[in-house]
Design a binder for these strands. Structure first.
Lengths: 346, 346
DNA sequence: TGAGGCATGGGCAACGTTGCCCGTTCTGTG
DNA sequence: CACAGAACGGGCAACGTTGCCCATGCCTCA
């Protein structure tokens, strides 16, 4: 097979010529617009089929529509985001909209800013932002340009919609679970704070705050111990090593998320301690790995697919014209597994 | 803060007016083109800064360039792809190009086809396809339209570049490792075959083929046992349950990838068997979870970041005009951990 | 002093699509 | 049979950017 020169792409004009109609007519058929007879519709559709015509998104963009939804994702390594994307994809399937993903960098404010600008420059019809660390003021600035849904943050906005997990409730579930098991010294692994916005807007801040509150409410203010790393396997490992070096050491660790919890499990293992006999470990997100029998990590399930579906639905509504702001919150559920058990006595 | 109407976006004409020059002049400055004095350059740059101007990708696209690289990814749930994306991002950082990701669905040929078309419709300057299942003929058709790099497939093409891991060598390493440990009955978990192209082009086919070859070369043709599922935790679990039901059951399982290997570990655990005393498990990809001390999965490391960087570099070269096809292969390394051990005697 | 070249800046058309508007033909009703 | 109104199809401009080309003015060199 020889290398042919790339032939010119089929345009609406080619279709019009082939179907013996005007370009306007073809456009009408494409958009299901008024003013096209069934006969013409068929003829044009046949021509489109025959020539393999596909509209060019760029030219459409110049007229205002791209049929593209931009999704800002901190980093694809976090498996929970995959659930969100599944939900988004499910909701968008069957519509004319296509999701494109852009990685924001996770902890790099500058990278995230560039990613957002990239989406704005590309004239997407709407943006879904997954747990952005960008200040709220900037999010609202973007939301004024184009329909925007923010996933995972708790602030109220009158300009964009919010879809989030009730991190407060979820954290309360898991910390109480540990306390009920008799734990008094419970370490917590949190993330470095990059945002400059209102505190507690980001999940890791809510979780840390609620952890502190619940501990205090149970008279365990002295047992509070927060280490700040990153929510990765490596971060969770390092944080747990630090917690285990305390004297007395905590008998349980709420890792804040499953990824650091996996690192915590490995750190406990390396220290020659047993889970849960010596140390209990709990995560958050209920990822698939958490359910594996040899891991069996206690976690908090937030329905990521539902959040994704809802976020995409809300965004489409906004694209279609809704302007009133909406909020949607998912109620988390504790999934107790074998990584948590009664506190060791003594 | 009130909801303002979205103001019109700043265009090149606004900048030109503000800087008292022509739009052509502004365009020249933007593109670092010839024919602009340093003085004018400064003036225009100041105006751009002042107005916060950003070029619109769609309008540029109509003139032939979008500064966008499309990345087709089967599914974000596979952690190995995150390494590839890190490499791609690293190489693209500092250039004017922005990567956008589109999910192909993994096992759904139709979804992948739509994803590829979405990228073509959006006039990206080049496409990086990660382990596509689309027939080669179609890949070449796309590659004639725009610069294309295919990651993970082994076929030769004169039209697109290929970047892949030497799956044959990697599989030989891991299967030999198991044989040297004394295993004779080694199960293998493979994936359903969706492609219709040349066999062995996709990694899972190469791995299965090489597994068979190495087994036979060591006189272990009778010990060959392949189950076909999907390369997910769930698939690996189900496949391993099936393998463990054999009589006699295999003493080792080469899971084909880390994700199914994790499922395999859990299945062995559930069956009340020990790893590696009763059953050895090996994966492929050397993901971060494999390195966790409590998992300690034997795996094969393929340098995903290097593959990603190389693929992105090759693509940029093609965007700049190279037409000769290139191939780049990464040499894998066996990482033996505690999930593999001597075959049980008797 | 004149010719040629270079540096600099701008005019213009074109990329593909769609919304607005206008003209023609057809249909139904008095 | 006349007329209003609907149905239908097409012309045209505009979206923002860039590549090609031309005009101007200055400098250099023979």
């Amino acid at each position: 097979m020889a290398v042919r020169e790339p032939r010119r792409r089929v345009t609406i004009a080619d279709v019009a010529r082939h179907a013996q109609v005007s370009t306007t007519a073809v456009s009408k058929v494409l958009r299901n617009a008024y003013g096209a007879s069934p006969a013409m519709r068929d003829r044009v559709k046949a021509a489109i089929e025959e020539l393999g015509y596909r509209p060019q998104a760029a030219a459409r963009a110049m007229r205002g529509r791209t049929f593209t939804i931009g999704v800002l994702i901190p980093h694809v390594r976090n498996p929970f985001f995959a659930d969100l994307l599944d939900g988004i994809g499910e909701q968008l399937g069957g519509t004319d909209y296509q999701a494109i993903l852009v990685q924001g960098g996770g902890t790099d404010l500058g990278a995230e800013a560039r990613a957002i600008e990239a989406l704005v420059d590309r004239q997407v019809d709407g943006i879904l932002m997954i747990a952005p660390i960008t200040p709220k003021a900037r999010l609202e600035e973007v939301a004024r340009w184009m329909p925007t849904i923010v996933i995972g943050r708790h602030e109220r906005s009158t300009i964009y919609d919010a879809v989030f997990d009730d991190d407060d409730a979820g954290t309360e579930l898991v910390v109480r679970h540990l306390i009920e098991l008799g734990h008094r010294r419970i370490g917590h692994i949190s993330q470095r704070n990059f945002g400059r916005g209102r505190p507690a807007a980001l999940p890791h801040l809510t979780r840390a705050e609620t952890y502190r509150r619940v501990m205090r409410e149970h008279g365990l203010g002295d047992g509070i111990d927060v280490v700040t790393t990153t929510w990765t396997e490596e971060g969770g490992h390092a944080g747990t090593v630090e917690l285990l070096s305390r004297s007395p050491r905590p008998t349980a660790v709420f890792a804040g998320a499953d990824q650091p919890a996996f690192g915590a499990l490995s750190a406990v293992h390396e220290a020659g301690l047993r889970v849960p006999q010596d140390v209990s470990i709990a995560g958050y997100d209920d990822t698939r790995m958490a359910a594996m029998a040899n891991i069996s990590l206690t976690s908090v399930d937030q329905d990521g697919a539902l959040m994704g579906r809802t976020a995409a639905r809300l965004l489409l509504e906004r694209v279609e014209g809704r302007t009133a702001a909406m909020r949607f919150s998912v109620t988390p559920v504790l999934v107790a597994r074998r990584s948590t058990g009664p506190a060791p006595t003594g």
